[in-house]
Amino acid sequence: MTAVITVPPSLDDKSFEHVLEQLAAQPEDAKIIVDARHCTFGTPYGLTAMLTLGQTRAERATFLPPIDGNVSTYWSRAGFFRYAEELFDIQGSVPRVRSTDEGDKLLGITPIAAAADVHLVVERIAEQARHILTTRLKLEPKAQMGFTMALSETVQNIVDHAGRPGWVMAQAYQYRQRLAGRWVAEIVVCDPGMGFRRSLEMGNRRPITDRWGDGLALETALVQGVSRFPEAGRGQGLKGTRGYIGRRNGKLTIRSGTSRIGLIPTWDDSVPLQENMPYFPGAQLRVIIPGEIAGGTP
């Protein structure tokens, strides 16, 4: 039997959980139809997580794209359909666009499989993003460099830990729901790989405790800076990224397995650790860096 998974009208990190709730009842090899026809908005998280979902299905899923032409065009420009065509059977036509990099996108959806892809992403951001980060977010060069470092380190997590290819996308936008519409830059990195818990288990780095699970694995990696590699310097990337985000009053969330951990700034009301969520393989990481306001970073 084929199950229909309905994509909410607004596809973002919160509403993607509704997609996963519907998916939880379906075995991995079940035939599913992902119905995004009535979707009118997709964030970088929503788009990259949707591609990740496509990677996780043993039986190739069917995808019904948004009916709204503006929405489909935006998704095309972000690079979504280019990659979705490889993962889903797309029913219906999707707009063809010549370029995936325009507007306020810092980086269109980009596949990450190897270290060379990380270099490519960093070089591309350095070329494309400087103007937006300077004029819209008013970030000084050192803060821009920190943004690129955060991008590099988060993307490397796929290469070093996931064991499967993943995705990255970065975008600048005015955050109307929070921060009084201030400009922010967002990085999203999603993969369907082994996730934090299995990565630490593979390296025999899990703490001895009855509490062991996805939540504690995320805590062990993010808060204690433990990596699956026993070398003294490993885990520095995530730790350094956490430091940069903290200094910029930014937000970091990592979802892996059944849990999500967050470095939550005062302007956001998310919970720092959420457990018992619907299972989704791999790791999905989201960074938000607010732009400057008069008088400096809040």
Partner: peptide, 15 residues
């Protein structure tokens, strides 16, 4: 050198 991330700083400078 344009930029150096934490992983490279650890791999080159620290080591």
């Amino acid at each position: 050198i344009g930029m150096m991330d934490f992983s490279c700083a650890d791999e080159i400078v620290a080591k």
